[in-house]
Amino acid sequence: MKAAAFDYVRPRNVAAAVDLLAADKGQAQLLAGGQSLLPLLNLRLASPARLIDISRLPELAMTDEDDATVTLGAGVTHAMIEDRRVPDPSQGLMPHVALGLAYRAVRNRGTLGGSLALADPAAEWPAVLAALEAEIGVVGPNGRRRLSGTNFATGIYATRLAEDEIVTALRIPKLSRAARWGYAKLARKAGAFADALAVAVADPRRGYGRVVLGAANGPPLVMTEAGRALAGTRRDPEQLRRAVETDLDSAADRRFDAYQRRLHRAAAMRAIVQVIQ
């Protein structure tokens, strides 16, 4: 179980990485923490001609904070979030999620940006960042742009990121102190990929409510009705339950079987209950 041969380059900065990526269109792949890419390489499920190692670019490790937002560089690792070595915009949601993500040895290298760019349907961050309405900063040959975190992933291992673009940072609106969140990950083993995963966030001060499902046979599934119900002032569990059912009904394209539907419903309700209790 050894990777096929590839070239390896380590650019000095993001601009150089963008140039390399553009020059090698389709042949090169970015290497950040490598915690998802290396297994694919070792199993020869991926065999890029060249790896562009961006794991230690200082620009990608920067963090910033203002009154309303926290910006985290794409190279911030799961462990940095877990240990609160970077500012937390989420009133504890992100550190909590990080703690349950794979294993510490993986969290020490795996990055936020890598997780978003790969868009594994069972991954945690795409769903969480959709629930927080994060903005994703990317850079490519045509310059920088910002994408919505809510619909950044478009499918299984598919995103709005162009082939020659790099995720640079995430700009995450801060939850207020009054905000509440809920998180439910149903996995058969600690650290394993989720069978179902739900994030619920309500920030009454902003009239904000979001419920997002991960591990949902595709990109994160934003549960519109449930989110709306959660944003309201009178939150009745029965009404929320009906909203969840409605959202699951409208997700016919995900082709959930009976088991999956049941698990997603349970995960969504568990996350929601944590918010409203």
């Binding site: 390896y8 380590r10 290497l31 490598g34 290396l38 790896l51 040895a105 993986v106 290298r109």
Partner: peptide, 21 residues
């Protein structure tokens, strides 16, 4: 986890890191 080693003081998977990195 059998290949766990420390890199810069933190445990990592030696199978999921390139020697070049």
């Amino acid at each position: 986890g059998a290949c766990t080693v420390l890199v810069d003081g933190e445990p990592i998977r030696a199978c999921l890191m390139l020697a070049a990195a």
